[in-house]
Amino acid sequence: MDRMKKFILDDINFSILIGLTICAIVLSGIFIGDKMFSIANIQAMAYQIPEFGFLCLAMMLSNLIGGIDLSIISGANAISIFTAYVLNGQWSFGTTGIVRIILAIVVAILAGICFGLFNGFLISRTSAPSLIATLGTMTLYRGIGMALTGGRSIGNIIPEFSYIGKARLLGIPIIFWIFIIVALLLGFVLSKTTYGRKLYLYGGNPVASRFSAIHNERMCRSVFLLTGVFAAIAGIIVLSRVNSAKVGYGESYLLQTMIVCVIGGIHPNGGRGTVKGVLMAIILMQIMSSAFTIMSLSPYTKKLIWGAMLILVLGMNYFINKMYAKYRNKGRY
């Protein structure tokens, strides 16, 4: 029993998260079980998780260094607009078929790297707070997309591209495999490599990390580079699933990615949190939003629930951390 208690209390946030997820599964199973756990719905969830998941990973990385990246969603939208322009032949430079798809993906990733590096340079070179710097680039990236499209949706892309979003391997969508592999890799990098340890130190205390011979500017740039790349992947996935690109897609994701990070145990001031927590939180969020869709709640009610959830989780974390600190200190005094 003591070992059990120790196990639960050791990573209290994660234990609570698992409890919440089980609660969500059981509750949705009792009330809307037959629709919720049909093969079709589970598969639909597996298709929906990756685009949202990559945005969450991007938000998580920026939160880990004590910042925030508001520009991921408008960045992903701008990137999917570029990609759509390549795929519908306007920017394809005469390529066709599979070559054009490869070109489109290369363009998307390059654009993601550019966007990420721009954020990184802006923040690391001028010491601008990331909240306000990415607010600026968010407006800028949305402006780029808006100026290119004039607010219209860009469609008419070659049909082969949608296979990326549709194809399956062993009954599970390929995009889901990609997401899981990237998430596991990221988890490995964060927990087992020097880079990961440096990142946590930089996030927890940037002044200490500067005086520990860590190149703070380079760390900052690399993190924002990664968020840019994740945003680009999210953009590709969105495009292949929706088959058209438009400014303003998925703007409600900003609140949801924040909720995922907060529930997943990422401390908004930086330096604390793990990928496994975020993965669990993504699954919890997806179960809840599927359940809401099945119950056909209005968007306003969803908004109410998400807002209430964010505030409740923040409040709960506050109390748990207070109690947890007491428990940890017990042995010491």
Partner: peptide, 13 residues
Amino acid sequence: LGTQSLFHGIMTT
């Protein structure tokens, strides 16, 4: 950001 959604949600619901 949370209270923004919360207030708007409470009002509309």
